[in-house]
Computed example of a mutant assay.
Amino acid sequence: MATDVVELILADHRRFEELFRALRDRTSDRGALLGELSALLVAHAEAEESEVYPALRRFKKVDDDEIDHGAEEHAEGHQALLSLLEVRDTASQEWEDKLEDLVKALSHHVDEEERTILNDARDTVPDQRRAELGKAFTKARGDRLNADCGSITHVRTLVNTP
């Protein structure tokens, strides 16, 4: 199992993409898939913000503005996620529209984060430190998943906290 924080984050990004493809399939169990996506997305963002982003600020070649922007995009993603979670009918056009809003927001964030923060981290942060960050990220993400962080109640709290 990978311990490099960059590889772990990239693996989550690929899982988001898989879940989006499955969520677009009208024959899938959209409710269950959305529950998985919500939990993973929130746990991932919270683990990045608590463990990874603060540590990366210490490296000169990792742009602090990009880290701040990444956190802002997490907040935008949480808002789009909440909008989707609030739609009850997974077969409705409203649900489809909200899903596409979430896909657009998250795809934009993933692309930017991979091109800037993660590439800089791969080039700048020593292997051992990336492994340490990977362990901290994995633990924080697991703790958040165990705390039911993807529940609509928790997502509402994230969105409504200034």
Rank of each mutant, 00 (worst) to 15 (best):
K61L: 13
D97S: 03
I9K: 11
L34T: 07
A45N: 11
R24Y: 01
A75W: 04
I117W: 15
L40G: 07
F16I: 01
V87C: 02
K98A: 06
E18T: 13
A80M: 06
E96I: 02
L106C: 01
R156V: 10
L106E: 05
D148S: 06
I152R: 08
E114C: 07
H44T: 01
R57D: 12
A140C: 04
S38C: 08
A80G: 04
S83Y: 02
D29C: 02
K61Q: 15
L82D: 13
R58N: 15
S151P: 07
D89E: 03
K104D: 05
D111W: 04
H154L: 05
R21V: 14
L8M: 08
R141W: 01
M1I: 08
L23F: 03
S38T: 09
A22C: 02
A75V: 13
V159T: 09
G31D: 09
L40D: 05
S38D: 12
L81V: 04
L85V: 01
R57C: 11
L102E: 02
T153D: 12
R15I: 06
L41V: 02
L8Q: 10
A80I: 02
E73N: 03
H69R: 15
E7R: 14
L81H: 01
G31M: 02
A80S: 08
L145D: 07
V125L: 14
R26Q: 10
R122M: 12
W95C: 04
E113N: 11
V5Y: 11
R57F: 12
E49H: 08
L118W: 13
P162Q: 15
F137Q: 06
V110Y: 01
G150K: 09
R144K: 09
F16D: 04
V110W: 03
A39Y: 04
L19Y: 04
P126Y: 12
A2Y: 13
R130P: 11
K104P: 00
A43F: 07
D101N: 05
T161C: 06
V62F: 15
V110A: 04
Y53G: 06
V62K: 15
A71H: 13
H74R: 12
A45K: 07
L23D: 05
A75M: 12
E36L: 09
M1K: 11
A39S: 14
F59C: 11
V103K: 00
A105I: 03
E18D: 15
Q79W: 00
L84M: 05
S107F: 05
F16Q: 04
R57V: 07
D4T: 05
E96K: 06
E36P: 00
R129A: 14
L102P: 00
D101W: 03
V155F: 03
T3F: 10
E51S: 10
H44G: 05
E113V: 08
H109Y: 01
A39Q: 11
S50I: 02
E113D: 12
T27R: 09
R15T: 06
T3Q: 13
E114W: 02
K98G: 01
E17V: 00
C149V: 13
A75D: 14
P126D: 13
H44Y: 05
L158W: 07
D64P: 15
D89N: 09
G70S: 05
A32R: 08
H154W: 11
S151N: 08
T153W: 06
R88A: 01
A147D: 14
A75I: 10
L40E: 05
